[in-house]
Design a binder for these strands. Structure first.
Lengths: 108, 108
DNA sequence: TTGATATATTAATACTTATTGATATATTGT
DNA sequence: ACAATATATCAATAAGTATTAATATATCAA
């Protein structure tokens, strides 16, 4: 496994975690706040076991962190993973823009 | 449907299209070149019907454009959709960074 | 200790999507 | 017209994932 495909794996994994409406709403709800699951249940109107499941997916993708305090589990957004994914997509876009003048074409 | 959820829909749809290794490799292969399907078959070692299927997914997400010339169909990267998705993710990350000082916590 | 609360896990089901092989359509060259 | 090439579509299957209900685990309050 080379570096390029390792980076691709990371980006694809993050995009997969982001590719669900419920999970994206969770991330939006977590911006700027440490939030427990019961609060998310109220805010997002999603069943608790389903939330735990999606939060696990997000945690495995590195997009959120979890910290247990008392009987609550507090989730927070990890900006770094988001930034890396954004940079990967932005990098592709930029490379495309820069190459636009010298577009190769195959199969003449 | 309000603006916020419409934007979310767009981001989620793009992420879903990006959430597959084969499709991500297609996008990388398309950077700076207009490429036909047969060329992608060679470069990526993916079966032709599968490629057509994934290209359709990417086109529906707005990530690639298709143009028929002769018997070939040329695909190219659409930087705009990538930029919009990158901006959406980057925006979440930035909002999180900016709010870090004043982190709310629920459930005392 | 007992009951209540918060979260995670498990099992079952439904749904979506990736993949493959076969075939249809369109275009070009002979 | 015919054969060859390029691409798309279709049908079938396999694999993955979202969702729900039930249950387990952990913590706190009384």
């Amino acid at each position: 496994m080379n570096t390029a495909s390792a980076h691709r794996d990371t980006s694809v994994a993050c995009c997969r975690a982001l590719a669900d409406d419920t999970r994206f709403r969770i991330l939006e709800a977590l911006v700027g706040t440490e939030t427990c699951v019961c609060e998310l249940v109220d805010q997002l109107d999603v069943a608790q076991p389903l939330l735990s499941h999606h939060l696990k997916t997000l945690r495995e993708a590195g997009l959120v962190r979890a910290e247990k305090r008392g009987r609550w589990m507090f989730y927070s957004l990890d900006a770094e993973a988001l930034e890396e994914t954004a940079a990967a997509l932005g990098g592709l876009a930029r490379a495309q823009r820069e190459a636009r003048n010298s577009l190769e074409v195959c199969c003449g």
